[in-house]
Write a protein that binds this DNA or RNA. Sequence first.
DNA 1: ATTAGCACTCCGGTAACTCGAGTGCTAACA
DNA 2: TGTTAGCACTCGAGTTACCGGAGTGCTAAT
Lengths: 339, 339
Amino acid sequence: MLTNRQLQILQVIVDDFVTSAQPVGSRQISKKDWITFSPATIRNEMADLEELGFLEKTHTSSGRVPSEKGYRFYVDHLLQPQIIQADEANQIQSVFKQQMIEMEQLIRESANILSELTTYTTILLGPDVQQHKVKKFQIVPLTEQSAVAIIVTDNGHVENRLLTLPNGFSPSDIEKMVNILNDRLTGVPLQELHLKLEVEALEILKQHVKTADTVIQSLLNVSTGQKEGKIYYGGKTNMLNQPEFHDLNKIRMLMDLMDKESQLQSLFKPKDKGIQIRIGSENNHMAMENCSVITAPFSVGEEQYGAIAIIGPTRMDYKRVVTLLDMMRNGLSRALTKP
Amino acid sequence: MLTNRQLQILQVIVDDFVTSAQPVGSRQISKKDWITFSPATIRNEMADLEELGFLEKTHTSSGRVPSEKGYRFYVDHLLQPQIIQADEANQIQSVFKQQMIEMEQLIRESANILSELTTYTTILLGPDVQQHKVKKFQIVPLTEQSAVAIIVTDNGHVENRLLTLPNGFSPSDIEKMVNILNDRLTGVPLQELHLKLEVEALEILKQHVKTADTVIQSLLNVSTGQKEGKIYYGGKTNMLNQPEFHDLNKIRMLMDLMDKESQLQSLFKPKDKGIQIRIGSENNHMAMENCSVITAPFSVGEEQYGAIAIIGPTRMDYKRVVTLLDMMRNGLSRALTKP
DNA sequence: ATTAGCACTCCGGTAACTCGAGTGCTAACA
DNA sequence: TGTTAGCACTCGAGTTACCGGAGTGCTAAT
């Protein structure tokens, strides 16, 4: 177990390194006026902390830097929420005060403000569309051979896909088809749509509309389109300001990662209802070396809806980010639940 | 006017610099076996070319580098289309061969292949939605107070927006409203929708549905949503490989630029039907220093539809990019016109 | 148990030097 | 007169040597 003095020292080191990005030495620590013991003592303690794996040296005669284990201990035991400036809190609240109907807009602005306040990059995972249920199904013919299929979900999300119609597919055929589909599919979650279409609807449709199966084939793609929630970014270039990202390869890896939406989902989707912090290698991803991710889910009513994630260097201002993130997440949950 | 020899030299310099990224000296030029004159002669000619503004030196005793004017002259007079490897041509064709209905998918793949083949970054401007005409208008109620408004355009594009309904707005009200709107708005291009809604439809609606104006107010946003065509990227990180982008500030400016969709539109939208090359400062944008953009519009039927743009360093392999771009644009035009 | 003192290490910056590639000029040449 | 060989000169990039500062670890004194 760590002594009280060791805790103090670890805390100072993390707090200091977070703001300065420079290895912190014993002298510097002893300067803090609530530190009563001498540099030499501190050096001894630091040697112990290093042996325990909480600290690291960049080279033999440098100051100390927190290790991943050090950060982990810090966030688990030493993290005390920061008081957020009133004007910053207001900035967050202002997003929710403006009477906006459009969820997309709201989410975009949230992401931007958050990345502005934190100086890190925000990733906002939109709702998982797959869990929405079909509210209404529709086909709008465009020409003789083409039409648009539209699915409206109970949450107001709209999916659409182009269809090619077989020759001689009449408007009345469409009408029949739409009726059957609405009858059969209303209330079905999108993730089961594919199955339902293929297994149930197809049979019935064939009985009523002869060439229905070609249309259904095209239609099947509708359900396979957007696999998971949409992703919004804020402050993509913010990380370029962090000294740990002054390396081209690093930048490339991160940018590539951010373009691969599928990867992001698994990486940033939170596992439970609380705020989660993943430090460096805990992310299980090459590109996330020296990076930490803090995720916070938000919800609409009872359902989990989406998540905000902040990605920055492991040397991140955890206390600040956690508090900001929590404010934002509460705001979002409330704003989205109300209407 | 430039002598034949000067033309030869300019051409060699551009071609060489494009591949090596190194200033090219007289000795190096004289090594080409179709160059018959000596380094000394070449030095003289280069001095002249520099005086004329086609070449530059990076420092007093370095080889020469093409100036913007040099590139401009090169693309205007010295550019001869390159023969593209059969397998590369096939790669492009393969995108169009697969029987894909989905335009979005097609565009995405095009962008990716193009950036892979060129090693530069591809930007694909989707169709300008504002010119589409309303085909069908619909409102799907979700709850007592909310509904989704959907507009399908003649090209199969779907716009949608959430609405809040005033208290006591009945299904029959919705039906009336939809009928009126379909009656009035079908065939109206999206860009005029706002106006038509406000001026014409509002009056008539108020006569039939008492609380229509609140709904219309929300509805007005539908038309102001997506201002212009969607943007697709390919090979965003490709430019990090180019030595001229080994500078953090440069990278940041470019990334910021790419995130500002509105800026992109004006920057990359081609002015006429042909392929256009804009070199460095011709782009009128800070971030585009040392960058060239080649744009090629593609069309569906007679209408101009969208555009492909390739962005790379001024030291770009123009002849290759132009040929590839032309192939891709023809392919796209054809693929999109057919169905 | 704590701390002052001291020798030692390592990084970062700077100055001096070298090497190679390239130029511009002059004079010789066809 | 246009072309070329020769040569002195310039500049950048890379290498080495050096210095100062910040920091450590250890020992001995408190």
